[in-house]
Write a protein that binds this DNA or RNA. Structure first.
Length: 263
DNA sequence: AAGTCCATCAACCGCCAATTG
DNA sequence: TCAATTGGCGGTTGATGGACT
């Protein structure tokens, strides 16, 4: 389903192109979403931050499922909607791999009518409750199984490191990747899994280990970490830590101008 | 074959809550 | 404490394609 696109004050609207998807996916997988408002500029897409966030959450993020809902998913959705109402994000958290938008659409286009019809058949109530209980226990099992394979998410932390515990200016930026909506991205991680698979990388991987491959491969992704890395050749970590925000941002802006807008 | 209707779903919009300075 | 900013949520829109006449 392809929608036509248009521009509004330089911000593109409408359907996302393959190229935009590629840019956004590559950027977030490498650097995470440290600030949705600034991300489009860094990722090189002419979209609003909101639009980027939506595209990532609903379509591009790892482990997102597309296509038909299974009967189990439908039953679970019906049960959860009965229990929670239109709390789509809450329901989405309990349906692994489904976005709130997809669940909302599923409800409005398929299940709403179905349940309205079924509502008259009160005898089905007991059956649905039983199905819901079964689906919930199944879902718990699926959750545990899914935890064993999360190949792509770890790359979100590829640009994250702590050379030393005192390098707080960098880790502070990095920690932003774990805030807000990441609870959705990582919602199917247990703390244990998180510790083993993510925190391990978070605290031990060298800072931007693949920065050389990024620059040498002609990949023009622009990263705040890339920026810091470049300036670290001129400034020590301590210098950067002591740099006030305004100065840091003016340095960042000149970097952006030189590397993106002059291309 | 052409026109119309309808279901689907990606994307947008506006509001609210949390965070920050 | 308060205003500004940011992120997230839920409702709604509109382009598209298939079914129907």
């Amino acid at each position: 389903m392809v929608k036509s696109s248009c521009y509004d004050n330089g911000v593109k609207k409408g359907a996302w192109s393959e190229d935009e998807d590629t840019k956004l996916r590559a950027y977030i997988q490498r650097y995470g979403h440290w600030n949705w408002g600034l991300l489009p500029k860094f990722a090189g897409v002419s979209r609003s931050g909101k639009s980027c966030r939506l595209r990532w959450m609903n379509y591009l993020r790892p482990n997102i499922k597309h296509g038909n809902f299974t009967k189990e998913e439908d039953d679970l959705l019906i049960g959860l909607h009965k229990k929670l109402g239109n709390k789509w994000s809450t329901i989405a958290a309990k349906l692994p791999g489904r976005s709130d938008n997809e669940i909302k659409n599923r409800w409005n286009t398929h299940l709403k009518k179905r349940t309205q019809n079924e509502h008259t058949e009160s005898s089905n109530e007991h059956i649905r409750t039983l199905e819901y209980d079964q689906a919930t226990s199944k879902e718990n099992h699926v959750n545990k199984t899914n935890l064993q394979h999360q190949p792509e998410v770890g790359t979100l932390f590829a640009g994250v490191s702590t050379e030393s515990p005192s390098d707080s200016s960098l880790t502070e930026i990095s920690s932003c990747q774990l805030s807000g909506s990441d609870s959705a991205v990582f919602s199917d991680f247990t703390p244990q899994t998180f510790d083993e698979e993510l925190v391990g990388n978070f605290w031990s991987e060298p800072f931007l280990t693949d920065i050389d491959s990024i620059t040498s491969s002609g990949n023009n992704l622009l990263s705040p970490f890339n920026f810091v890395n470049e300036f670290s050749s001129q400034y020590s970590c301590q210098d950067l830590m002591m740099t006030d925000d305004q100065c840091l941002w003016s340095m960042m802006d000149s970097y952006i101008e030189n590397n993106i807008f002059l291309d």
